[in-house]
Design a protein around this nucleic acid. Structure first.
Length: 457
DNA sequence: TTTTGAGTTGTTCGA
DNA sequence: GTCGAACAACTCAAA
């Protein structure tokens, strides 16, 4: 008689340590690990595809090569696979995103039709979306009170939490005995990010914890420095779970700032869980009347923005870093986002889509609600008059121009402060002049916001 | 129910 | 060079 068997279907929790779904699958008996390669993902940029493929490879290595890849629509592939291998249960980490919920509902329905079930265990968040509520049971819409309640709800749970024990005796039943499609292709990229394995992510965390975290609140805003954890891709793909980080934090100001960033991640996941349509629609409907440019000139400007040839060095440096590595420093993300929305007057969705395509850590909730914040359409929106000045941001956060020269080599020989805004004779011949005048576009943005207010009254 | 204080990340201007 | 005020009005959250 064969032993009972379950399928562990990996999606965005690409780890084995501290994975509740694995413990549950193991309790069912033999475990068949599955990853479904979704054709929709092939639209992503090379660094993003490379990181996911590398994470899967590292995961598979830990399972002795047992990971089964199948290509296609999960709603068809997963139930068929469960029937093929004779598994009654498919265990997953729960996905709270709009696409993931639709997908999982479809999969669960088809599994149920065959007398099987989808079992969701755990999530990639410190506190699951939908959990943090006000006294009247409704969700928070402002970050600061959310984060206080998040901490109040979370801390007792985290204190009594036991990391899921290492599962050393799992009997993996998978490839090569089970037929397998190929893994996703691994494009070559030159990445400065930590490699995509659990061991290297843990090493990076240990290094950051001992060397960088205590100065996090000071150094995290300087893009030339290694002042951030750079663990966002590991968190995005579930190579690490946020509680593995929170467990190590102490009652220190810099640690609290770092934890607050993890609270932002949970906050935006919660907002998107409550309002799934806000992935691509304004959270604040009154902002729908905002005038944005979408004509041919707008498309040309958008192309210049994506390719890093706006003539604003800090913007171009960030956009080039994104294309080259799949990552961009957070301070620079805010600067380029403000530039797209308030200097170029383009729809925030254009920028969000580009980021999602290229960012290795691109997460729909954090990314798109971050963009909504920048555009003033979202939760906790920035006041309309808060318009980033790309030159003064550059002077303030990259005072020596080190980041600029690293990513915009045309500026290598521009000395002193001119590197932040090389104009006239100081501009190298191969570096473009500014595509717009910031002062003029700032006024234009303020004018548009004001006329919106007048129209609303 | 009403009131009150507050709200991630900024810039500019004038004294 | 430094500093405070202005830039609006609204919504949220809790007392």
């Amino acid at each position: 008689m064969t032993r009972a068997r379950s399928i562990l279907w990996f999606r965005r929790d690409l780890r084995l340590d501290d994975l509740p779904a694995l413990a549950v699958a193991h309790a069912h008996g033999d475990v068949t690990p599955l990853f479904v390669v979704d054709p929709a993902f092939s639209a992503s940029g090379a660094p993003r595809r490379a990181f996911m493929a590398a994470a899967l490879q590292a995961l598979d290595d830990r399972m002795g090569g047992a990971l089964v890849y199948r290509h296609g629509d999960p709603a068809a592939v997963v139930p068929a696979f469960a029937a093929e291998v004779g598994a009654d249960v498919v265990v997953v980490s729960r996905d709270f995103g709009p696409y993931g919920r639709r997908r999982d509902a479809a999969v669960a329905e088809r599994l149920a039709a065959d007398g099987r079930r989808l079992q969701g265990v755990g999530s990639p968040y410190a506190v699951d979306p939908g959990t943090v509520v006000k006294n009247d049971g409704t969700p928070y819409a402002v970050f600061t009170p959310f984060s206080k309640a998040w901490l109040a709800v979370g801390q007792p749970r985290w204190a009594e939490r036991r990391a899921t024990p290492a599962v050393g005796d799992v009997n993996w039943v998978g490839a090569p005995d089970i037929a397998c499609d190929g893994p996703p292709a691994v494009p070559a990229v030159d990445s400065t990010l930590p490699p995509a394995s659990e061991a290297s992510a843990r090493d990076r965390w240990a290094e950051f914890l001992s060397e960088g975290l205590d100065q996090y609140d000071d150094r995290r805003n300087q893009p030339a420095l290694d002042g951030t954890s750079r663990l966002s891709p590991a968190l995005r793909w579930g190579i690490l779970h946020p509680l593995q980080l929170i467990d190590d934090l102490g009652p220190v100001r810099a640690h609290e700032v770092f934890r607050s960033e993890l609270a932002w991640r949970d906050f935006y996941a919660d907002v998107l869980f409550r309002r799934p349509e806000t992935a691509w629609e304004n959270l604040q409907p009154k902002m729908d009347a905002m005038v944005v440019d979408t004509d041919a000139r707008a498309k040309e400007r958008f192309a210049a923005w994506t390719e890093g040839r706006t003539g604003y060095p800090i913007v171009d440096a960030g956009m080039r870093q994104l294309l080259a590595t799949g990552w961009m420093h957070n301070r620079v993300r805010m600067i380029v986002a403000s530039f797209l929305v308030k200097d170029l007057h383009l729809p925030w969705q254009w920028g969000a889509r580009h980021f999602m395509r290229h960012l290795v850590d691109g997460d729909l909730a954090s990314n798109n609600h971050g963009w909504q914040w920048a555009a003033g359409t979202g939760t906790d929106a920035a006041p309309y008059f808060r318009v980033f000045n790309p030159t003064s941001q550059s002077e303030r956060f990259d005072p020596d121009g080190e980041y600029l020269r690293r990513w915009v080599p045309e500026l290598r020989d521009v000395g002193g402060v001119a590197v932040h805004a090389p104009d006239g004779l100081l501009r190298p011949a191969d570096y473009p002049p500014p595509i717009v005048d910031h002062a003029a576009e700032r006024d234009e943005a303020l004018r548009r916001y004001k006329s919106l207010g007048a129209a609303a009254r």
